[in-house]
Design a protein around this nucleic acid. Structure first.
Lengths: 124, 124
DNA sequence: CGTCTCCTGCTACGTCTGTAGCAGAAAATA
DNA sequence: TATTTTCTGCTACAGACGTAGCAGGAGACG
């Protein structure tokens, strides 16, 4: 299940409060996104079509519930990143992170250690 | 600089052999993607418009060169993943990886150690 | 019961992406 | 030089995505 940036925003809401109405979600995302009610509505509907959410009518209001877990979605996102931007392996992502300046020297050392271990295992 | 899946495929080619012609790239990606020559051409042109590649005419043939490094592109991709699927921090990505079944027990232990360290630093 | 709200279903439309074809210029080749 | 090959520039078009409006039905409230 691949999600777009906007879809992640909505899914996060629904994961936090399962059985959310359009209004629930809208009230939470509008302040930061500026999206209109109908925009949120459309996107939620598309997420239903996509199989990421279920929609159930309660009286005249639809309630949305997640059909996929955030873990599964995350796993898929990491997988995609690995395939697109790296060589498909965790190792190369770790490699990259080890070179990120944003990490402290200690973090880098830890990552380097992990990488060595992966290397050893791969070679044997 | 955000790249789509197809764009990553092409960029990888150009990074490996800077100053590539459409044909060079096409010959390398066609076997796995099945894309036509003109498809590759169009996408390379779009990457130029996007600022990811430069295009220089040599005789009647255009040569493409990367304007962004693969490291920068990767950094950006990781950043995007972090922002979309996690809470924007490396820590939560590491957290996720620590729970991935695909990692060995040793890997998990290492990651857990890293996470503890990050926690400690954050709290102090 | 009439009116005001709110919700849904449907429609719209510009942009980006994937995927490509075609015509004409330039180069290679016979 | 005549012909074949190869490039480029331009155009196309369907599907996904971002963003939203509108009309009409269902509840809420006076």
């Amino acid at each position: 299940m691949k999600l777009t940036e906007s879809e992640w925003t909505l899914m996060k809401c629904v994961w936090e409060s399962p059985a959310a109405s359009v209004r629930d979600v809208w009230e939470r995302v509008a302040p930061t996104t500026g999206w209109r009610y109908s925009t949120v509505k459309t996107m939620l509907t598309r997420l239903v079509q996509k199989g990421a959410l279920s929609m159930e009518k309660r009286a005249n209001t639809s309630l949305f519930r997640p059909l996929i877990t955030s873990r599964a979605a995350r796993r898929s996102a990491v997988r995609t990143l690995l395939d697109n931007a790296f060589d498909g392996t965790f190792g190369s992502l770790l490699q990259h992170m080890a070179h990120e300046e944003r990490l402290s020297a200690q973090d880098r050392a830890k990552l380097a250690e992990m990488l060595n271990e992966l290397d050893r295992r791969k070679k044997s």
